[in-house]
Amino acid sequence: MLEPDKDFLIKLAHTKMPYGKYKNRDLIELPEYYVVWYHNKGFPKGKLGDMLQTVYELKLNGLEDLIRNIKRQFPK
């Protein structure tokens, strides 16, 4: 897993999927099967890919609430 910093996690907590079937859904709220599909297919390049990879690792380890708590503590 990437070693995200505080700012990265805060940004992740507020980032929405920019395209596709789940456009405008918070990344942490994407269905697990969809994130696993990206993991198998290959994550996009850049910041979105880094965030999706982090979401994959969080979901794999049952840590989604970490991001939900960050979103509540650091509202936009």
Rank of each mutant, 00 (worst) to 15 (best):
E57P: 00
E64I: 12
Y22V: 02
K47R: 12
M1T: 08
R25N: 05
N24H: 08
I70T: 04
G49F: 14
H14E: 08
D50V: 05
L66W: 13
H39F: 07
H14R: 11
I70F: 04
M17Q: 10
Y38E: 02
K23Y: 00
G49I: 13
G42A: 08
K16H: 08
P4F: 13
K6C: 03
E57C: 12
E29W: 05
Y34K: 02
P31G: 01
E64G: 10
G62H: 05
Y22A: 08
N69K: 09
D26R: 04
M1N: 03
W37T: 07
H39E: 09
E64T: 13
K59G: 02
K76I: 15
K76Q: 15
P4D: 03
P4Q: 03
E57Q: 09
Y56N: 06
K71R: 15
N40H: 12
L9K: 09
G62I: 01
R25M: 05
F74T: 12
K6A: 11
E29F: 06
V55M: 03
Y22S: 06
N40P: 03
L60E: 02
T54Q: 14
W37V: 04
Y38F: 15
N24M: 02
I70V: 14
K45S: 14
H39P: 00
G49Y: 14
K76S: 15
L58F: 10
K76R: 15
K11T: 14
F8E: 11
E64A: 14
I10F: 04
T15W: 02
Q73S: 13
E32H: 05
L2C: 00
L63R: 10
Y22E: 10
M1H: 07
Y34F: 13
L58H: 03
G46S: 12
M17K: 01
F43S: 10
L66N: 00
G20K: 07
H14W: 10
R72V: 14
K16F: 05
H39C: 00
L60I: 10
F8Y: 12
M51V: 02
K21C: 02
A13F: 14
K6P: 00
L48P: 06
P31K: 02
G42M: 06
R25Q: 11
L27H: 14
R68Q: 06
K76E: 15
Q73F: 12
G20T: 09
